[in-house]
């Protein structure tokens, strides 16, 4: 009996517990990062617009995200009349959940990864393609015209940009020869992929903006015409979940950009000073660098019109990424650089 229990503990319970501990180790810093990303966003945009930004709560306004979170926590959760309650509450949970599960396959350093699966890129692609559900479900379940229109826009937008993201991913993994994210990073030992794949790096970054509904592609929540879009009817914690999900998705998209194009945890040059700094630090620094671009774009560009958004996705990015895929495959074939 004791033998069986020990076996059960060693075989199943302890690995399970260990994974739970690891998940907490990833999710907790992530949530803090999300909170401070909102702070960074306000501060950076304020600096770009020559304002001060939040500076009242705590030193330099550092406690502002905590105050915002607390405020949202204490608000009343409102359920609109004739809303579909189950779907209504399922939608923000799903958004938040999907923004977190993507991190399971992200390698933070050499061997520092929760799930080192063979189809890591596809997993991330699948997770990011599911993100649309939270938005479309909330739009429908709110039983409100503005929310519904926001949800429909978002569905069309995310499906459109996913196509070009898919082709960019294929170009990259052709050069790697593996779907494993750690292999993708290791393949960039000699040169980071943003150099040979420069056009695709740009396409991927812009598609990432569209995929995470960030400006200038934040049409689903165009406050001028849709009074905020899919999340108009949400308040308190369900709204907070959408908010957290959106920002966590931004960080995830930046992490994807870093892994695919900016060499993941690898230092820029393999020289003594750079290689002393541990991989995870490089990885986080690069994520911050990409996130800064996300915020910079928001402070700089006006919002796209809807037909322009669709035109860019289908008539510019799709042919471009498809052509690049053919070029990549041809070059690899004719120069004999095909991996393995």
């Amino acid at each position: 009996m004791a033998d069986l229990l020990l076996n059960l503990w060693v075989e199943y319970l302890w690995p399970l517990l260990w994974i739970v501990i690891l998940i907490v180790c990833i999710v907790l810093p992530l949530l803090i990062a999300v909170a401070y990303l909102t702070y960074a966003e306000r501060k950076i945009i304020a600096a770009m617009q020559m304002r001060k930004g939040p500076n009242v709560v705590g030193p330099f306004g550092l406690l502002q995200p905590m105050a915002d979170g607390l405020k949202l926590f204490l608000k009343e959760t409102v359920l609109p009349s004739r809303a579909n309650a189950t779907v209504y509450f399922l939608a923000p949970m799903m958004t938040f959940f999907l923004a977190l599960v993507g991190w399971a396959v992200i390698p933070f350093g050499e061997g520092i990864v929760l799930a080192d699966i063979n189809v890591g890129i596809l997993y991330l692609f699948a997770i990011s393609s599911l993100g649309v559900y939270g938005i479309i479900m909330s739009g429908w379940a709110s039983n409100s015209k503005y929310a519904f229109l926001g949800g429909l826009r978002s569905a069309a937008q995310m499906v459109s940009y996913e196509v070009s993201i898919g082709f960019v991913l294929i170009s990259v993994l052709l050069t790697v020869g593996s779907l494993n994210l750690s292999d993708v990073v290791m393949a960039q030992k000699s040169v980071w992929f943003f150099i040979p794949h420069l056009p695709m790096f740009v396409v991927f970054f812009i598609s990432g903006l569209a995929e995470t509904n960030r400006s200038p592609f934040d049409l689903p929540e165009a406050e001028a015409e849709l009074v905020a879009g899919y999340n108009v009817e949400y308040s308190a914690m369900p709204f907070a979940l959408f908010f957290l999900g959106e920002y966590a998705n931004m960080i995830l998209m930046s992490a994807m950009t870093v892994i695919l194009f900016l060499g993941g945890w690898l230092p820029p040059m393999d020289i003594a000073l750079f290689s002393w700094i541990p991989g995870p630090i490089w990885f986080i620094a690069k994520i911050c660098f990409v996130l800064f671009f996300f915020l910079w774009v928001r402070a700089t560009f006006p919002r796209f019109r809807y037909d322009q958004l669709m035109r860019l996705g289908w008539k510019v990015f799709l042919p471009l990424s498809l052509a690049w895929l053919v070029i990549t495959a041809s070059v690899l074939q004719f120069t004999g650089l095909v991996p393995k």
Binding site: N118, A126, S129, A155, E162
Partner: peptide, 26 residues
Amino acid sequence: AEFLAMVLVVVYVGAVAVLFLFVVMM
């Protein structure tokens, strides 16, 4: 068959069902 599993999610859930939902909601 992890590849098929992921492709099933990407293609059917991520694209086909979204368009289904799109039409059915309207």
